[in-house]
Design a protein around this nucleic acid. Sequence first.
RNA 1: GGCGAGAUAGCUCAGAUGGUUAGAGCGCAUGAUUCAUAAUCAUGAGGUCCGGGGUUCAAUUCCCCGUCUCGCUACCA
Length: 678
Amino acid sequence: MIKNPARYLVTSALPYANGPIHIGHLAGVYIPSDIYTRFLRSAGREVIHICGSDEHGVPITLKARNEGITPQEVVDRYHAINKKAFEDFGITFDIYSRTSSEIHYETASEFFRQLYDKDIFIEKSSNQYYDEEAACFLADRYITGTCPHCGNENAYGDQCEKCGTSLNATDLINPRSVISGSKPVMKETRHWFLPLDKYEGWLRQWILEDHTEWKSNVYGQCKSWLDAGLQPRAVSRDLDWGVPVPVEGAEGKVLYVWFDAPIGYISATRELTPEWEKYWKDPETKMVHFIGKDNIVFHCIIFPTMLRAEGSYILPDNVPANEFLNLENDKISTSRNWAVWLHEYLQNFPGQQDVLRYTLCANAPEAKDNDFTWKDFQARNNNELVAVLGNFVNRALVLTDKYFNGSVPARGATDEYDREVLSQISLLKEKVETALEGYRFREALKEAMNLARLGNKYLADTEPWKVIKNDPERVKTILNISLQITANLAIILDPFLPFSMERLREGINSNESRWSMAGSDSLLPEGHSINTPSLLFRKIEDDEIEREVKRLLQTKKDNEDNSSSASPAKENITFDDFSRLDIRTATITEAVKVPKTKKLLKLTLDTGIDHRTVVSGIAEYFEPEAIVGRQVALVINLAPREIKGIESQGMILMAEDKDGKLVFVQPSDRVTDGSEIR
RNA sequence: GGCGAGAUAGCUCAGAUGGUUAGAGCGCAUGAUUCAUAAUCAUGAGGUCCGGGGUUCAAUUCCCCGUCUCGCUACCA
């Protein structure tokens, strides 16, 4: 861990430009990184905060294809939306760049070239599907065909969306190119690989020995990867959307998105400043990557290996990855529209960015997945922001307004309690600071709020509204101290609640937000005039929350309706095709779990003809004991297949709903085993 | 199945290197108060620290075995 770095380089995960940003992104990555950088800036440290859109990769090309537009149009759209969303929420990047920019192409090419020239990569050839009409290699996603498992004729080369099986393109029966519809042919293609395995020893030392201070989820995940052993990883693919591989004879190949994306941090820095190298190459720079847990392996293992292989770059000092945020007890999902989108939030709660910032920080998934509920959001706002913070500030200002015409009264003689309270200010400041430096943002926010609690308590204890009647001099001191607390809040809470604290500073007529000034007991001089107070936060009423909850319930309902819409019918077959299938009733006589699997049961069935063994992927839904004796429908003339070393002789018919839940298809009355089903 | 992370008051979470009555915020109850957005302040109730073993004079904290949740991974004819 670097002590007293000369400067900081803070990066926030590049959001993938195929969708808008939601509260999960904000809570996991951008709120913490923004608080961190705002704090560093306020503390006068040299810091830059880098982010941008990650715009390459297959999903974007598919989205473009589906919508009949170009990939560039897709990324232009989301780049604009997300850039604005970040600005609206006060996420202060020094630059929000994008990986489709010219400077990124240049940077990524150079980086690749450096490693290439140093002979870091392994070159390997393999056979892949090639579309002769379109004259290009086909990524797995660009091939459809019949799923060898479920017979779905529109399975993708990487996965069958019907049965959920992950596939290799070569598994597909009757493969077709998505681009031209033609039948692809196998053709040799060459790719470059980053030999991660060669860096294993170095990585073990660097992470497991030198960075034991990393968060347990991060450290554990890295250890898991390292213990499992690393494999060389392809850095190029056959695709036309991305950074071309800058090597002769590599036409039609681009850098794999995982290789190209983190370099986006570097190119964005280059775009920002000609002095980019001092941020990336001076060991006095402290680099910190803010990411979500899905990105740990890239930022802790792969990117550092790239940087190390190149040789002239520094490595991250820490990678404070957060866990995931759930929404109302359910996983956030873009495709299921189960999310609170940033632009929607601002429509419903205009001007209330800080409320969301506060809630998401106070409830950030730092150590484990966490749940966002609207009810909690309302409670945090009403019971904490309004009742504790807004209320204290308002009390201090209103009293000053009322008793001293809005002019900061002189602080006279202080008693022991006054001095105790004043000393608490700098104590709390230090606690906030320590927590922030350790990436403990929830704790930092809590301590910062304790300053407002201190203020409330101070007022309750000193009761200036009573004292004013017979000792106005004493009230001057009390309010002076209350106002010093207020002015300190405007600094200490600024990284967390920038919009509100800006307004608070307007209220107290101050523009002091330097962290070094926090802790001072004399931020506001005697006679300094403050403005007529306005409220910092407003209560959020039940009906506003109900509105949001209703919207989510509607989403849930819509999803159910959608899921009830059945998938389209397959192509017609002849009666002969059908009669080739031999489906019979059969009774399960034995059922045991296949060892070392999660889904597989080994079943023995009485088919009326014989007793046979079938392996079936239903263990997640059925206990072995519970299904013995059950009569089922069985395809008995399916070619046998070995699964986990067991020969499976047939297939039990199951109905599967959209969520993957399985139920048996069985005769409504018991019939003789071996009865034909047709 | 393997690996990683987590399981602590009604809710959301803290609990270095094991040590007297296990903490905080919110919620709840009671009292005080009225400057303040019915806000604040004080006090209190509430916990077999997931279960079971073990090490130890002593375990929420260490070890082993389970259970459940989340992620990665294998498997789903």
